Simulated assay, not measured.
Amino acid sequence: MEILLPIFYFPPISWFAEFLKSDIEVTLEQFEHFPKQTYRNRTNIYAANGRLSLIIPVRHFGKTAMKDMEISYAEDWQKQHWRSIKSAYQASPYFEYYEFKLQKLYEEKTTSLVEFNLKCLKTILDILKLDQDFKLSEEYVVESEIDFRNHFSAKKVADKVFPDYYQSFSDKGGFIQDLSVLDLICNLGPESRAYIYNL
Rank of each mutant, 00 (worst) to 15 (best):
M1S: 14
I3V: 15
I3C: 11
L5H: 07
I7W: 07
F8W: 10
F8L: 15
Y9T: 00
Y9N: 05
F10K: 10
F10L: 13
P11A: 10
I13Y: 13
I13H: 09
A17G: 04
F19N: 12
K21F: 13
K21L: 06
E25P: 03
L28I: 00
E29P: 07
Q30H: 08
P35D: 00
K36Q: 04
Q37L: 10
T38A: 07
Y39T: 13
N41M: 05
R42S: 10
R42Y: 02
T43A: 13
T43P: 13
T43I: 01
A47Y: 11
A47D: 07
A48R: 00
G50H: 13
L52E: 13
P57T: 12
P57H: 11
H60T: 08
F61Q: 12
F61H: 14
G62Q: 06
K63V: 04
K63C: 01
T64N: 05
A65K: 09
M66E: 09
E70I: 09
A74M: 12
A74C: 03
E75N: 13
W77Q: 02
Q78V: 01
Q78R: 11
H81E: 11
H81D: 05
R83F: 05
A91V: 05
S92N: 00
S92W: 08
S92A: 07
P93D: 09
F95W: 01
E96D: 04
E96Q: 07
F100E: 15
K101R: 14
L102M: 14
K104A: 14
K109V: 11
S112I: 03
L118Y: 08
L118G: 05
L118E: 09
K119P: 11
K119N: 03
K122G: 11
T123S: 07
T123K: 10
I124T: 06
I127S: 13
I127V: 15
K129M: 13
L130E: 08
D131Y: 03
D131N: 00
Q132R: 02
D133E: 04
L136D: 03
E138F: 06
E139C: 07
E139P: 04
E139V: 06
V141S: 09
V141T: 08
V142D: 09
E143D: 14
I146C: 09
R149D: 06
H151P: 03
F152S: 14
F152G: 14
S153W: 12
K155N: 15
K155C: 03
A158Q: 15
A158D: 15
D159E: 15
P163R: 12
D164V: 15
Y166F: 12
Y166T: 03
Y166C: 04
Q167Y: 06
S170W: 02
G174D: 07
G174F: 09
F175A: 04
I176R: 02
Q177G: 07
Q177C: 12
L182A: 08
G189R: 09
S192E: 07
A194N: 02
Y195M: 00
Y195R: 06
I196M: 01
Y197G: 04
Y197H: 00
L199G: 09
